[in-house]
């Protein structure tokens, strides 16, 4: 039997950098190697350590189970610790992820739009410019989103 396929992790925004490079000390002597931090591992660090969510909340945001999230978190910390201690560079890439954003509806001009910057609520409709007519839109095809 083949193993169960990995559930795609929801990532809100791609990271602002594609990696980190060490400097000083042994970094001069040559390449120590690199650590490949997956996008889902970046996201889990962002949610748990930057936004200070607990694992339950972060699991809901990334649309995975709480144990899966904790596993990704442990892996992410192990990789970052490895890079920090042994002086490797960090490259953020790969991972089983999809990018997602929320939908909003403007009742003024009857259009739907999404907000690519997550965490920011749109102030006005991008089409007609009105602000009082915007509502959150829950799409009907939420088959990938299970409430934990």
């Amino acid at each position: 039997m083949s193993p169960r396929p990995t559930r795609l992790r929801r990532v809100s925004n791609p990271p602002v950098i594609s990696g980190l490079r060490p400097y000083g000390g042994k970094a001069k002597e040559g390449q120590q190697g690199s650590v490949f931090l997956h996008l889902e591992e970046y996201e889990v660090i962002r949610l748990c350590d930057y936004e200070n969510l607990n694992h339950h909340e972060a699991a809901r945001v990334m649309d995975v189970s709480r144990p899966t999230l904790t596993r990704i978190y442990a892996k992410a910390r192990a990789k970052i610790a490895d890079a920090l201690v042994t002086g490797k560079q960090v490259i953020i890439e790969g991972g089983k992820v999809y990018f997602d954003s929320d939908w909003y509806k403007c009742n003024g001009c009857n259009c739907l739009f999404n907000q690519p910057d997550k965490g920011v609520t749109p102030e006005k409709c991008p089409l007609c410019g009105r602000s009082e007519t915007i509502t959150r839109y829950e799409s009907s095809n939420n088959q990938y989103r299970a409430e934990p």
Partner: peptide, 17 residues
């Protein structure tokens, strides 16, 4: 399309008129 445009930070406006 959605995941592609989300990673490129392009906004989609669905206007069914």
């Amino acid at each position: 399309i959605k995941s592609l445009l989300d990673s490129l930070k392009i906004q989609m406006i669905v206007y069914k008129e």
